[in-house]
Simulated scan of single mutants.
Amino acid sequence: MKKLTLTTWLLTLSLGNVWAEDPPAPETDTAAGSNTVQADVPRVMPTPQQTRIAGLIARLSENDSHEIETLNADGTDFLGLFRESESGDPQGCLVMLHGDHGHPDWPQVIQPLREALPIHSWCTLSIEVPDIGGRATPVTITTGENDGAAPEENPTLPNEETVFARIDAAAQLIRDKGYSQVAYMGYRSGAAYALRYTAERGTTNQALILIEPRSFSPVSEFELAQNIERLRLPVLDYYFNRTPQDERFARQRQAAANKRTNRQEAYTQIDALPDARYDPTGNKRLVQRVWGFLKQNINQQSQRKELPEFEKELFYKSPLD
């Protein structure tokens, strides 16, 4: 036992001498080179929107490349998906704005409408809307308290100027393709942009369709709803009453509509919660609601195609024959 203790002590002393030695200093050139390499390594920044759009273009390029349009607003290119009316008597065209972190062929709401409405004499142009913020961006909660700061008289949505310029470019493309009537539709944050656009532009003689509208800071839901009072065109407000917040926001929009001086233009609010399912049945109801609203509230164009001639000889034989 005594011998083991001595051996252990000697081993400890030996290791202690090794640890006490100063470690060899790295060569200056190697260290500098290492630091240089680290500084020169490019950092890969995630670009989720560009990735979504690139994937969408790759998918559509296989069979539907004719739908892809490259538009430009303020010097920046963006994607549009155009579908021609599939009838001989086109009634107009619908500009479609998807929700935040979506794309112009989003499977919920956007895709069913943009594919089905052309069958009912409406062309569709679904455009790319920039993301409001990254997925890791902290959410700003609007409480109504401003800590003494004066509130903005007319707050704007994030990217509002960019989105307005894109809507202008989309409307111009539609006119260039020969369509005289333009309607606007937005889904969630896209509905907020469409509402703000038509209110700010004083749009008339057209139509606005809001699907499950959502607002974003610095524009509160109440402030967004007040834009409805300024509208001068028919509006379909199609929402899903899932929460008390949804119900409160819907009441605010209806109250603003009730204060409009231009009451002859329709404002139709529908709690479509029973239709809020993303399957063929829910999509069919959505298409019927939107198409029916457009048909009832926009001047229908006269038919361009001639009616087939009635050939009597197919059904009538003269007694002289």
Rank of each mutant, 00 (worst) to 15 (best):
G190I: 03
V129N: 06
T140V: 10
Y193V: 00
E160I: 01
G178Q: 14
T142F: 09
A150V: 15
P138Y: 15
K177S: 14
A149H: 05
Q181N: 12
F164D: 04
T140Y: 14
G134A: 12
P151D: 01
P158C: 05
G148I: 07
A170C: 03
P138A: 11
E161V: 04
T142H: 03
Y184E: 02
Y193H: 04
D131E: 14
T137S: 13
D176S: 12
E161A: 12
A165D: 13
P130E: 14
S180V: 10
R196N: 09
Y193M: 06
E145V: 06
A149N: 06
G133S: 15
A150R: 09
L157Y: 08
T143E: 03
S180Y: 14
A165V: 09
E153T: 14
A194K: 01
K177V: 03
Y187T: 04
G178H: 06
E160Y: 02
G144F: 05
T140W: 07
E152S: 15
I132Y: 03
P130W: 07
A149Y: 11
M185F: 12
G144H: 03
G178P: 12
T162Y: 08
D131G: 11
V129C: 07
P151K: 02
A183L: 11
E128P: 10
S189I: 14
A170Y: 08
T137Q: 13
Y179N: 07
N159M: 08
